[in-house]
């Protein structure tokens, strides 16, 4: 995927490394490219190196080796220019519980140098966009987790960044808040052309939002591609059919065999097949079984998930595959590794 330079550049990373004193390599030579307007999902377990990568790309932590350009600017040599191009909502919504949402907006718009006349309007616009107008004058200490995350996102957008870094933006949120945040992120990319670099440990988040996914484990990218391509690369979807009458099992197996080779692990009462043509063949399978007059009690499609991809690449399941604790951002002496 070509990534241009200058105004429309995305993110280009080559051999990026971060080592901490007395610790392992948190990030161990990663390469990646994110095109302008793309949503890139950076998926991995806690301690895999996601947050450390984000800290480096947002210029808050110098890399030990390697290079990266964000928005066409070098993250080491052009830190202030990079920061002017990016917005970031880092892990844990970093908000002041004693200030209101509106006061956060006032501070952030002023520090980003927005003209005084525009600050209030910009703040109000963003608060409305994330659904916090009603709560704007309440202290943030009384906000729910979802409200804090939405305010965090709004604060990251104050100066109209072209590139947005979101570090585990929905961790700990209920499904309603999570979906609302996904919608806003998708809208930013689709309507405003914002490039989004999103770290997550949630498979469904990467699946639902990301145009492409990079899977990181122990500081290394172990797989990269579109969610569909990654899943397709490790295997085809399986359809399992269980007939209503046990005596029809052989007939079911015969029908399924037209669509590919038999699947493994099928229950004794049914039959399964690895769909050579992918998930789109499911309808044909249903029609073929119907044409044979076989009554089906249960029909299940097993599509490979990103967890299967992670399992195939690392030998471990994504859930529960935690490594190291997160580092303290900005501390050179941190001896541990970020998520």
């Amino acid at each position: 995927m070509a990534v241009d330079s200058g105004e429309r550049a995305g993110i280009e990373v080559e051999g990026l490394v971060r080592e901490f004193k007395n610790g392992p390599r948190a990030v161990d030579g990663i390469d990646l490219r994110v095109a302008p307007g793309e949503i890139y999902g950076f998926l991995g377990p806690n301690g895999a190196g996601k947050s450390t990568t984000v800290l480096m790309l947002t210029t808050l932590l110098p890399p030990t080796a390697g290079t990266a350009r964000v928005g066409g600017r070098d993250i080491v040599k052009e830190g202030p220019r990079v920061r002017a191009l990016i917005g970031a909502a880092l892990q844990e919504a970093a908000l002041d519980p004693l200030l209101s949402g509106r006061e956060h907006m006032r501070l952030q718009t002023a520090l980003h140098g927005l003209p005084r006349a525009e600050r209030t309007a910009r703040g109000d616009e963003l608060l409305a966009r994330v659904g916090l107008s009603q709560a704007a004058d309440r202290k943030v200490g009384g906000y729910s987790g979802g409200m804090k995350r939405r305010l965090d996102l709004a604060l990251a957008l104050v100066h109209g960044p072209r590139i947005l870094f979101l570090d585990e933006p929905t961790t700990g949120l209920d499904i309603q808040s999570r979906t609302a945040l996904w919608d806003e992120v998708a809208r930013l990319a689709a309507e405003e052309g914002v490039t989004v670099f999103l770290t997550t440990q949630y498979l469904e988040e990467a699946d639902a939002l990301a145009d492409r996914v990079g899977i990181i484990d122990r500081g290394r990218i172990v797989a990269e591609g579109t969610p569909a391509a990654l899943k397709a690369a490790i295997g085809r979807p399986t359809v399992e059919a269980v007939p209503h009458e046990a005596t029809d099992r052989e007939r079911v197996a015969a029908v399924l065999s037209r669509f590919g080779e038999a699947g493994e692990g099928t229950r004794r009462e049914g039959a399964s097949v690895l769909l050579e043509g992918g998930e789109s063949q499911l309808a044909e399978v249903v029609r073929a079984l119907d044409a044979e007059g076989i009554a089906i009690e249960r029909l299940q499609l097993h599509a490979p998930s990103l967890d299967d991809v992670f399992l195939a690449k690392t030998g471990r399941s994504l859930e529960g595959a935690e490594d190291q604790p997160a580092p303290e951002a900005g501390s050179e002496e941190a001896g541990a590794v970020g998520g």
Binding site: T58, L60, P80, R83, A84, I86, G87, A88, L90, Q91, E92, A94, L95, D96, Q108, L111, H112, G113, L155, A329, G330
Partner: peptide, 16 residues
């Protein structure tokens, strides 16, 4: 507290 909560990082991302 600003350091512990990450608020300092938020400020560090501005031209402060």
């Amino acid at each position: 507290r600003d350091i512990e909560t990450g608020f300092l990082n938020r400020l560090a991302l501005t031209p402060l």
